[in-house]
């Protein structure tokens, strides 16, 4: 079990995380944030493996990754 959280107000919608996610779980949110960008969202949290690749490539530190301690 893993999940990500996205700081949608500071996300600039560069979408680098969308390309980085090996399972294609991150998509552009059609709603705009206060800065006028389309932030990203995780569309299928149940599939997230907690690989952190989206967070590694995020230039704005908007993604936090959580993983079940096994």
């Amino acid at each position: 079990m893993a999940k990500i959280t996205v700081d949608t107000q500071n996300c600039k919608g560069c979408l680098l995380c969308v390309a980085a996610c090996p399972r294609g779980l991150i998509k552009k949110d059609e709603r705009l944030n206060k800065k006028g960008f389309n932030p990203v969202k995780c569309v299928d949290a149940a599939q997230c493996s907690g690989c952190c690749l989206c967070a590694v490539i995020c230039p704005d530190c908007c993604i936090e990754v959580y993983k079940e301690n096994t």
Binding site: K3, V56, P59, V65, Y66
Partner: peptide, 20 residues
């Protein structure tokens, strides 16, 4: 769940002025 990736301590919370 345990947090395994987040903002490093040495990086302030300020949003940057850099382009997307």
């Amino acid at each position: 769940m345990e947090k395994i990736y987040s903002r490093p301590r040495s990086l302030r919370e300020n949003p940057t002025h850099y382009c997307p």
